[in-house]
Design a protein around this nucleic acid. Structure first.
Lengths: 390, 390
DNA sequence: GGCATTTGTAGTCAAGGACAACAAATACCC
DNA sequence: GGGTATTTGTTGTCCTTGACTACAAATGCC
């Protein structure tokens, strides 16, 4: 709450800055850290030394760089501090051990027969966490657990307000996991964490203003990165692009009564037209491309128009540098990029659109786990001095 | 660019924090500053003393507070540092001398016969600034000039990209004013500055996440406050809510071809139905309320539905604590608040809407000038140590 | 092999806020 | 009206931090 600032705060922020450079930007030599932070050489040496002592970074022998001058030691994350990222879904619980630098160490997927209740999920997670901890080198120390929840999560207390496809309402899921596992648990909306992951390690690297929309089996979620950090809003529910109702030029193009983006731009509808039961994104992309039926093309075109309208609205409001599309929406983008681009341009203020590009997400299926891991690492990254080696 | 942090930075931030408390939150005693910052008493004493030396604050005798303990000196802004806020519009150039704490000292309005060219506007502004400076007490020192532009302003170099109603395109207006007046000039979009003003001094005081939409004679502009500061986006063009195309339930409710919010929710259309040439907002509100024609009510209802859809989209995405409506949109809100509320609720995710309220703007006609003044004060507020008394 | 260049290292310095002790100014209680 | 508790201003000391300087180390280049 207090806005005060003291000398200790300087140290905390500088430690965080250095750790952040190595973690997010994969900076590899101490000299680079000096250049990028603008700090004095001796200060950087002390900061890195402290982070090494804390067990967060490792310094290694200089690598031949064929440049004039004394070589600088390489710096990389210590492999020991890890978090466990978890994504409970309707058909499975996926989890992974993730180290600094978004290094996914181990990954397990536990399919479930029926949509899990919160209690089911807690049991599975506790079990998976035990297994992952047991299978990890003994040196690893698990800092926290990060949950990517397919639903709305209240920021202040991590309460799951509503997870439509899981059928959960007002579930204190994070607290339940915390009780069962005995580790700090952080939780956020899955799409928001996807946005965070793409911003830090994916298609949006180095981009401080972007919006992200993801088309999953269960609908469309999203998130926005504003000035380099996740837009949360008052309660933590920001980014619900899928629930928006974009304007449609031709009333016949609207085929659902609610008219929300996720109802209109529906993966299931295209699967139906293709006569497919299910498909992963590459399969779907191929099926669309090779489809002979013109109905598929017409439907894709219809959906594209509505997607463009929704993106146009978002671009007008956020003036982002990048629009990142994941999942089914990336498939949509791949289907006909120039037309989608043009359609968005038509619905935006020219200045706001200029310099914006629409790109597919880059991280693939690890995206949510990387985002959840980042969430779990956040306390450590913000105040590395509080971290103690086990 | 560099993320470094040093001991001097602590001082700079603490000076800024203290000045900010007095300027924005009208904190009035030194003890309050101590409590709110969490800084040590002696530190606050030194900080305030430095700000007094710099000519930014004044300390006065304690005021009787009927509380136990030694009374604390009152602290208030020094009246000497001022900025000049300017709002060039189609029908007039308005300007004011504004001191810290949003104190509007002098205000002048220079009507123009025809829509001014950039050169016309520069001439008028140079003249008005001379007049305002001459009429101000000699002790006043003008820190900068802030321009509220009815158009898109590129953040990096303050270039006016497009001001539709003025008919300006790619005009380096801020630079022109700077050359003519010889003072630092800052510029931003008028609606964005309105959002800033309402956030700091108006209906959005103390609210760190809000969206603001303003209905003016020339259309609908807006801005968003995210985590306590203005959403700029990549180029500075964020907040163009008026150009969005919200979904409409009944196709007949859409009466324009483009279907943008500002085309559909049109003040002119209502004026027409009322048979009025022009009106200010109170007059319009009364005219709507007393109108016998049902056409007016039908039109208002139609517009309300579209406005609600646009607001719903924005609430889903931003999850703001507050939606602030200004100008014609405030009139719309006043016309039937519960129905508008309910209509927005119907188009939003329940969790995102919960805790959000829609309120009218509070600052009236000084809003843009206060926003522009805030912009002009920003360098001073960020780094008070660089300010020198003339 | 000498030299320029870059970077690590060690020691000194200055600045800032915390803290403790004391003084000052008020309200409250008897 | 006097004593006491409470709150806050004031002063001086201390600790932490990053900057700076000088020097050493390690490389490429001529």
């Amino acid at each position: 709450m207090p806005a005060r600032d003291n000398v200790d705060g300087v140290r905390r922020r500088n430690l965080a800055t250095v750790l952040d450079l190595v973690h997010h930007r994969r900076v590899s030599s101490r000299a680079d850290v000096t250049a990028l932070t603008g700090l004095n050489r001796s200060t950087v040496a002390a900061l890195v030394a402290e982070l090494v002592t804390l067990g967060l970074l490792e310094e290694g022998d200089p690598v031949a760089s064929s440049r004039v001058g004394r070589p600088s030691p390489v710096v990389h994350p210590d492999p020991r501090p890890v978090v466990i990222a978890v994504n409970p879904e309707v058909d499975a619980v996926t989890a992974a051990v993730v180290g600094l630098g978004a290094r996914v160490e181990r990954r397990v997927r536990r399919p479930v027969d029926a949509v899990p209740t919160p209690e089911d999920a807690v049991t599975i997670i506790a079990d998976v966490v035990r297994e992952l901890v047991a299978a990890s080198p003994r040196s690893r120390r698990v800092a926290a657990i990060g949950l990517a929840i397919p639903g709305l999560v209240r920021a202040e207390d991590r309460l799951v307000r509503w997870a439509p496809h899981l059928g959960w309402r007002e579930v204190p899921f994070a607290a339940m996991v915390e009780d069962a596992v005995g580790l700090p648990v952080l939780a956020d909306n899955d799409a928001s964490l996807g946005a965070l992951a793409e911003h830090l390690f994916g298609a949006g690297r180095g981009v401080d203003d972007l919006i992200y929309l993801n088309g999953g089996a269960s609908g469309i979620g999203g998130g926005a990165i504003v000035r380099g950090s996740l837009l949360t809003g008052r309660g933590g529910y920001a980014g619900e692009f899928g629930q928006n109702r974009p304007g449609v030029d031709d009333p016949h193009d609207r085929v659902t009564s609610r008219g929300t983006l996720e109802d209109e731009v529906s993966r299931a509808r295209v699967l139906d037209l293709l006569g497919l039961e299910s498909a992963d994104e590459p399969q779907l992309a191929t099926a669309i491309k090779t489809a002979t039926s013109s109905a598929v093309r017409v439907e894709m075109r219809r959906q594209q128009g509505i997607l463009a309208a929704a993106l146009g609205n978002a671009v007008n409001v956020f003036n982002p540098e990048l629009v990142v599309l994941g999942g089914y929406l990336a498939t949509h983008l791949a289907w006909d990029p120039p037309t989608l681009d043009a359609a968005v341009r038509d619905t935006t203020v020219p200045a706001a659109w200029e310099g914006t590009s629409i790109v597919p997400a880059a991280l693939g299926e690890d995206r949510l786990l990387i985002g959840a891991a980042e969430l779990a690492f956040q306390p450590l990254l913000r105040d590395p001095g509080k971290w103690f080696v086990g």
